[in-house]
Design a binder for these strands. Sequence first.
DNA 1: AGCGAATGGTAATTATGATTACCTTTGCCT
DNA 2: AGGCAAAGGTAATCATAATTACCATTCGCT
Lengths: 205, 205
Amino acid sequence: MRRSDAAVADRAQLDAATRARIEQAVLEVFAEREFHRVGLIEIARAANVSLQTIYKYYGSKEALLFVSLDAWLGKLAARMLDHLQGIEDYKERLRKVFWVCLDFYERNPKLMQMQMSSVYVNTWRKHEQFDNPQLFGTFMKVLREGREKGVITDEVEEKYVLDFIMGTLARVIQMHVHRGMKDSLVAQANPLFEMLWRAISKPRP
Amino acid sequence: MRRSDAAVADRAQLDAATRARIEQAVLEVFAEREFHRVGLIEIARAANVSLQTIYKYYGSKEALLFVSLDAWLGKLAARMLDHLQGIEDYKERLRKVFWVCLDFYERNPKLMQMQMSSVYVNTWRKHEQFDNPQLFGTFMKVLREGREKGVITDEVEEKYVLDFIMGTLARVIQMHVHRGMKDSLVAQANPLFEMLWRAISKPRP
DNA sequence: AGCGAATGGTAATTATGATTACCTTTGCCT
DNA sequence: AGGCAAAGGTAATCATAATTACCATTCGCT
């Protein structure tokens, strides 16, 4: 039994490695050309797996895209949770949230390129993974802390504050990629965050 | 000669009316189902024109989408220029810019739905109509006024200020549609704008 | 060695729909 | 009336790929 357990574990490892390769290929290919212009065979070749493997793992082309996307966003979420550890001050927590996003996308520009080239927002949403629940949840959680502490403005509903943050993040990253990633995004994290903070913090009279 | 001129004018009028019908159909259909799931025949039927007419007017399916999108954004730009007339105060001008966008999308929710269902940001960009130059230009122009007057923050480059505004706008509208357009967006325009203003105006010590 | 699961390779299967070609109809102008 | 220009209708073209089916191969385990 031990041995077969180990075998299963090995297989799981293998699966994980293969999935990683596939998801990397997804990123590369769908970032360059749009979803409907890419055949699955191309992904298969780029990932060094067969077509059947992809179908066994993901079931369909669309699922392949969204599961992969979710996997990448999951990594972002994980990194964020990791980085938030040990930070107490509320403003600094939020700053970190902001920073991790910029940093992650700067390290993985293909992720945003893929989103811009191959993801219809609506279709994504219907896959129940809209903006990744884990990621979204972390944002929401940090934000709520601030509300409870009375640090965040209450002139508008919470959801709009969230839109504010997410909107700025998305656009800044998107345009950074769009402009060819010439300058460092992370270098702008602090001034941008200070702007954002002025917007969403409760005005102190 | 007069008569034939009139005839040409009539024809141009007809063209305009037909185009309007087609572009309305584009909005309706591509808002509901994504670009690649819709056949052109369906658009033709919805607009009460023949397939050939569409090809004569637009040349291809993709052009149809982007020309239509651009036409709608052109209307937004026109409305904005119209509304800006006579407003002197800089902050009020910017507030108006913000308001017109929310108002326009609230009146035409299908526009955002179409963007979310059928427009890949990258593909759009490649069509040289990214975010509509006219619209974009108006934003930029108003923004620059503020920079010159020293009212807008200079802690980050101008482009980031623009990203801030556009990002917030896009996200707020997008999520409004996403959430089912239950409450009025325009009703939130002022508090949202005040938040934005705090972010982008030069802090007064 | 021999089994079994997972994978690879190749070739159907099947839709699907964009784009064209061609011919008919309509409506206006001279 | 006769003719032109725009629009409609129908049926090719022509690709293009997603999805399946089927069979061969590999590799670890017993």
